[in-house]
């Protein structure tokens, strides 16, 4: 088993390295000159040349790539061309803020999705099941900004003015100091991904509940709760983990739109600002970060798949 996991880990590292290559090449191909973006149209040729030298833009491409990669590996994401400060300082707080959003939304949607899917599967064909299916289908069809706007209308403006519609915390103060401002963004993200998890869980669980070993467990006189938790759930988790991973990976990207909508000071906001300012270093850092989230989440799903499948688990001992 450990050999299998190590192999997956190595593959993930290789993919991550490929991503650094792609990100670097892509920023090279971006139209626009960062030097011109910083200095404006009236800059003198001397100043442009000086800045180019300072930014190391005259060095060969492979050398710049290696310098950048070396920095990334040692945890130094370079210097922001826009603020002239280290990217690390710029993103530090924002990564924390986005992470809070992501983890809260992920935990909420996973728990609700698994529970709702299981509940629905147990009531297959009854009214409750049809209601869950119908509602989840409708929500799944709505894009995240529509859900966000609808929630704002419903919970922070005319109908029930309960929650702030934008993030109010002053810069420098951590976002979780005012938990009420987290509710709407987390709810929006959770609502976007929960329907997929629910539907997948319902389908997988239905299949598992019809299996021979669940029927056998019932015929052994095992209490229903144990049947569900010990015999059914472990077999449903493996396939559903793949869908959860895809959804969490989507969250890492979807956070950009939602953060913009709620003026939330996370990496999504930073990415939008950086693109506007031609802040290449920051764009590279954030793209790499989001890619890393994708890879880590998929790796975790694979590991869950391996752990819940004894055939894979015992492969080495055979």
């Amino acid at each position: 088993m450990s050999r299998l996991i190590v192999r997956r880990l190595l593959v993930s590292l290789a993919v991550l390295w490929l991503v650094t290559l792609l990100v670097f090449v892509a920023t090279l191909l971006l139209p626009g000159d960062p030097v011109r973006a910083i200095l404006g149209q009236q800059a003198t040729p001397e100043r442009i040349a000086a800045l180019r030298a300072q930014l190391d833009l005259d060095a060969p491409v492979w050398e710049r790539y290696l310098n950048w990669l070396g920095g990334v590996v040692t945890g130094d994401l370079g210097t922001s061309t826009a603020t002239q400060g280290p990217v690390n300082d710029l993103l530090g707080d924002r990564i924390g803020a986005s992470l809070v959003l992501l983890v809260a939304a992920a935990v909420l949607s996973t728990l609700v999705g698994l529970a709702l899917g299981t509940w629905s599967a147990l009531r297959r064909g009854r009214a409750a099941d049809h209601t869950v299916s119908g509602i989840s289908l409708v929500i799944a069809a709505l894009p995240e900004f529509v859900i966000g706007v609808a929630l704002i209308v419903l919970l922070s403006t005319t109908v029930f003015p309960l929650l702030p519609s934008v993030t109010l915390a002053p810069p420098g103060e951590p976002v979780w100091s005012q938990p009420s401002q987290l509710v709407l963004p987390v709810l929006t993200l959770a609502l976007v991904v929960t329907p997929y998890i629910t539907r997948m869980m319902r389908a997988t669980m239905s299949e598992v509940l019809d299996s021979g070993y669940v029927e056998m467990a019932r015929l052994k006189g095992i209490p229903e709760k144990t049947v569900l938790l010990r015999h059914a759930l472990p077999h449903a988790i493996g396939p559903v983990a793949q869908v959860i991973a895809l959804q969490l990976a989507w969250l890492a990207g979807g956070v950009v739109v939602v953060e913009f909508l709620f003026r939330y000071p996370g990496v999504g906001q930073a990415l939008i600002d950086a693109v506007n300012n031609r802040d290449v270093e920051v764009v590279q850092a954030i793209t790499l970060l989001i890619a890393a989230v994708y890879i880590v989440v998929n790796l975790l799903a694979d590991i869950v798949g391996i752990l819940t499948n004894p055939k894979l688990r015992t492969e080495v001992t055979r």
Binding site: G212, M216, L219, H235
Partner: peptide, 24 residues
């Protein structure tokens, strides 16, 4: 009924490959 199943009334299934829990 559950108290009787497995205790007083037991069942041996047709295909053990499907009826034994593969993960236990």
């Amino acid at each position: 009924r559950r108290a009787l199943r497995g205790h007083t009334l037991a069942y041996v299934p047709q295909d053990p490959a499907l009826s034994l829990n593969p993960a236990l």
